[in-house]
């Protein structure tokens, strides 16, 4: 055999490799030419020993080239065939990817619960820690320590649910403010907390009332806290919750537990301040009550009003949810209709 024969053999082998149409066929071709014992090319390689030393170099080179070429061709063809077979297998497993599915992968947050988490996050930026307090309170914490002695006219706005005996000493808190007292009595200033939670008032359910609803209370007590600080804080939070371009106004008000007292309104989003049904023609929507903690309340909380001051505020996430999400009936918030929940 000569180098020329080797060339012909190679050409034949390459042709068969190219012609193989399955991985098994290709393996047969490989065994025929490169089989370890009797492959035609393998056998041709064994002739090397029969050649004279001066012929060996040339033939050896030719053999190496030929077998290298065949191996490469085999590999390429194998990859091609393997890819083709995988594709066929996958085609057999065809699925209609446009088919609509039913299972919701992820559940939805409740708008009010979600809003409370959002409010907590905003206040976390300002160093406020979210704390909880009991929903059932005594008169002392819900009213008296907050400057509302029995018969105080301001109690009228807090139409209170009382418990029956033997638990007759307890009431359902009418606001989250008692947690202010608990926080002041339980630790020393500086103090920065917010208190999200449920409260209840004796209002018959209607589109603008539910007897149980949520509040988020906030309290900041330190040396030298001012009404300017309250204003700055409220503006920051309202911008965060309602968007930076929403107009805000602070209005003088009255609460027994703060002085000076303020209420915050945001411009009505429905009418842009012109007046409409949503804002009762006022152009503004009340969202928050606040003020500088009354010196008497500070004292009741064990804080010296001569050295410390503070501000407090309270907002209603249910109401804010109504405003932000365009709800028309507050009661919808407590019916858990999935058609509503799935929008959040």
């Amino acid at each position: 055999m000569t180098s020329v024969d080797l060339q012909e053999l190679t050409a034949m082998a390459l042709e068969e490799i190219a012609g193989a149409d399955s991985l098994e066929g290709l393996d047969e071709v490989r065994l025929r030419y490169l089989g370890r014992r009797d492959g035609l090319v393998t056998l041709a390689g064994q002739r090397l020993r029969e050649l004279s030393p001066d012929q060996r170099a040339a033939y050896g080179q030719a053999f190496n080239r030929a077998s290298g070429e065949l191996r490469a061709a085999l590999e390429t063809r194998q990859r091609e065939l393997a890819a083709g077979e995988e594709a066929e297998r996958e085609d057999a497993e065809w699925v209609d990817m446009s088919h609509p599915f039913r299972e919701p992968g992820q559940g939805h947050p409740h708008p009010v619960a979600g809003l409370i988490r959002e409010i907590e996050d905003v206040f976390a930026f300002l160093g406020y820690q979210s704390v909880a307090g009991p929903e059932l309170e005594d008169d002392q914490h819900n009213f008296q320590l907050l400057n509302m002695p029995p018969e105080h006219p301001a109690r009228d706005a807090h139409d209170t649910f009382y418990l029956s005996p033997p638990a007759g000493g307890w009431l359902y808190r009418t606001h989250t403010s008692p947690v202010q007292m608990r926080a002041m009595l339980g630790s020393r200033p500086p103090l920065r907390i917010i208190v999200p939670g449920r409260v209840a008032r004796r209002d018959n359910p209607d589109p603008t009332h539910t007897p149980v609803f949520h509040q988020v209370e906030g309290l900041c007590v330190d040396r030298g806290v001012t009404l300017g600080d309250l204003k700055g804080t409220l503006e920051y939070v309202i911008r965060a919750l309602f968007g930076g371009d929403r107009r805000v106004r602070l209005r003088a008000s009255f609460f027994p537990y703060t002085e000076p007292s303020l209420e915050a309104d945001v411009a009505c989003a429905v009418c842009q301040g012109v007046g409409c049904r949503t804002c009762l023609q006022k152009g503004w929507i009340e969202i928050l009550g606040s003020g500088m903690v009354h010196p008497e309340v500070l004292r009741n909380g064990g804080v010296d009003p001569e050295t410390h001051s503070g501000f407090a505020f309270g907002m209603g996430p249910d109401r804010i949810a109504v405003l932000r999400y365009g709800l028309t009936d507050l009661r919808d918030l407590y019916e858990n209709d999935l058609r509503l929940l799935e929008c959040f």
């Binding site: 300002l126 009404l227 204003k231 209005r251 003088a252 002085e259």
Partner: peptide, 29 residues
């Protein structure tokens, strides 16, 4: 009381005139 006077002064001047500030965080995390 004095704080009643503070409120009278504040509301007649108008809270619009009070500059909004953010108090420094002094409490430990």
């Amino acid at each position: 009381t004095a704080v009643d006077l503070a409120e009278e002064v504040g509301r007649i001047i108008g809270y619009r005139e009070v500059p909004g500030t953010l108090p420094p965080i002094r409490q430990a995390p």
